[in-house]
């Protein structure tokens, strides 16, 4: 049976939007998540801030720093999630040590149980490669959460097979090497990765560097089932100007691009 997250890709290409929880405070985050959903976000990826975010570029590092300085903790994060009354799946993106330390006993199970209870539908853990994922996968299965794996441009075929064997929800296609952050174009690596994943059973969503309607259209036209956008939203949050309305408008723009990409007949643009 398809999970709640997988089902979010059913009707049309999905927009997965990221903000860091607690940037600049928990109440604002709730307002921003609702705005993103009004704008058409199908899944909201809510960052649980960790002090050493090695996969993030400077935009999201800034958001994480602001959230930590404002006092966001794993517990206040889960309280925030429990309070959110939106009708889309929520995915928690965080680093392994916070999952591992949660609760009185060290280990991943207490966090996964609490996250499921609060209403989290899936986890993305950028510093947890498939090789080290057995304990977390087991806990996620036990509590009905999807564990979402990231496929990089450098991922070998052998590693891809191992990931697909245990992935659920969707496959996170890292559109380019490096860290998160808005870029001005869609990389060739994105197209190569999508071709490699053609036969995968799960929806494929592309992240890293997407900020414009045109990017979303091109990526969906290239075979993606969804786009993941973070830094473009976080920039709006950081500006502190008319944030909710602008988040809604930006989500609407990106969602429209993704939908256009699906309507357009893919052309054989490369040989």
């Amino acid at each position: 049976m398809a999970s709640e997250i997988e089902a979010a890709f059913d009707d049309d290409p999905a927009l997965i939007s990221y903000v860091a929880a607690g940037d600049p405070d928990a109440e604002s985050t709730k307002e921003y998540v609702r705005a993103l959903v009004r704008g058409g976000a199908d899944i909201v990826e809510l960052g649980l801030p960790f002090s050493e975010p090695i996969a993030e570029g400077s935009t999201i590092q800034g958001a994480i720093r602001r959230a930590l300085e404002a006092g966001m903790t794993p517990q206040t994060y889960l309280d925030l999630v429990a309070d959110l009354d939106v009708d889309v799946p929520l995915v928690c993106m965080t680093y392994y040590n916070l999952i591992y330390q949660y609760g009185d006993d060290r280990g991943v199970e207490p966090f996964v149980a609490a996250a499921a209870e609060a209403g989290i539908a899936g986890l993305i853990v950028p510093d947890l490669p498939v090789d080290e994922s057995d304990p977390l996968k087991e806990a996620c299965d036990a509590h009905g959460l999807d564990l979402i794996f990231m496929v990089a441009p450098t991922t070998t075929d052998d590693r891809l097979d191992r990931m697909l064997a245990r992935a659920s929800g969707f496959v996170y296609v890292q559109g380019r090497l490096g860290t998160t952050g808005a870029r001005s174009d869609v990389s060739d690596e994105t197209h190569v990765s999508l071709d490699r994943l053609d036969a995968a059973d799960l929806p494929k969503a592309v992240g890293f560097g997407i900020s414009e309607r045109e990017h979303a259209r091109e990526i969906v036209a290239g075979g993606a089932d969804g786009v993941i956008v973070g830094s473009a939203f976080v920039d709006i949050v950081a500006s502190q100007e008319n944030v909710a309305d602008r988040l809604e408008a930006k989500a609407r723009e990106l969602k429209a691009g993704a939908v256009e990409g699906a309507e357009k007949v893919p052309e054989p643009e490369r040989t």
Binding site: I54, A55, Y96, P126, D127, L128, P129, V130, D131, E132, F149, M150, V151, A152, P153, T154, T155, T156, R159, M163, Q174, L177, G178
Partner: peptide, 13 residues
Amino acid sequence: GQYVPEALMPAVE
């Protein structure tokens, strides 16, 4: 262990 992003795993291997 090897707790690094997937993008680095092939280099680590």
